[in-house]
Design a protein around this nucleic acid. Structure first.
Length: 272
DNA sequence: ATGTCGACGAATCGTCGA
């Protein structure tokens, strides 16, 4: 397909990231500042809380990113930003009728071939006994079927976003006290493992990580200052991509800024 | 359980969702 030169080889690493920004209208300046310091090729955003007519396409284009948005008023909303073209953009979970804007997918160029990127804002679920929790489990069923079908179509796949699931005890600041509560239930964790069983790996756990690594901290009760957090933002990579994953980190820097999102970005690096 | 946010509607705070 192409000749290989030393110059070209330099381009063969790629970073992608996911960040729940908790209102893009509020956080756009922080997104732009973060991208300037972290010029990732692809950024998946969640909780835009705005409609597509209010999406800041121009400001992002000026920063070097094209965008595909799937927003809604007040709640939810996801987008993919990319330095290179986004192809085959699909909104929502194909085969699952959802009133919420929670999933957007696109294909991007990557090292060694195109990559299908799925960006999800998973249902929160509030509490195990609530109607919202029942919706969460149905939504996860729908997502699982969708990811299975997508993997069959494009084995080089990444699923990232705010999963609203702490997959294991070590992903919670208080696994005993919070056992069985939202983000920690066995039903949610079984769904997470079912996604892995499709042929996906939690890229963060492919590497040695500091203990008590979290991606979300409650605004209340000095959650961040006390590191009372959860690791609920994830980047899953398919078996076909896994050999190319060279790093995965959580960037806590923007969580320390004024008026931060309650979530921190998670970054994955792919190499040749 | 909640000391924080953010959006919204019809207020200048209450409510919802996270």
């Amino acid at each position: 397909m192409h000749t290989c030169t030393a110059f070209e080889a330099k381009d063969h690493t790629m970073k992608l990231a996911t960040w729940n920004v908790n209102s893009l209208a509020v956080r756009l300046p922080q997104v732009l500042e973060w991208l300037q310091a972290n010029p990732v090729e692809v950024l998946a955003l969640q909780e835009l809380k705005l409609t597509d007519d209010k999406f800041p396409f121009d400001a992002l284009r000026a920063a070097g990113y094209e965008a595909a948005a799937f927003g809604q008023k007040t709640y939810n909303g996801v987008a993919l930003l990319s330095r290179t073209p986004l192809a085959d953009v699909v909104r929502n979970i194909v085969g699952f009728d959802d009133e919420h804007a929670r999933v957007i997918a696109a294909t991007v160029a990557g090292p060694g071939g195109p990559i299908r990127v799925l960006n999800g804002y998973f249902v929160n679920g509030q509490a195990p006994e609530s109607d919202k929790f029942a919706y969460k489990l149905k939504w996860l069923d729908g997502l699982q079927a969708y990811v299975r079908a997508e993997l069959a179509r494009q084995p080089r796949l990444m699923l990232m976003g705010d999963f609203n699931i702490a997959p294991e005890d070590r992903d919670s600041y208080d696994p005993v006290g919070l056992a069985g509560t939202i983000h920690h239930t066995e039903a949610e964790r079984a769904h997470f493992r079912a996604l892995l069983d499709l042929g996906l790996a939690d890229s963060f756990r492919l590497f040695e990580q500091p203990p008590k690594s979290f991606s979300w901290w409650d605004y209340r009760m000095l959650g961040y200052q006390k590191n009372r957090g959860l690791r609920i933002d994830h980047i899953l990579v398919s078996d076909a991509l896994r050999p190319q994953v060279s790093a995965c980190t959580i960037d806590r820097v923007p969580r320390k800024w004024d008026k931060p999102s309650d979530h921190a970005p998670v970054i994955v690096e792919l190499s040749d």
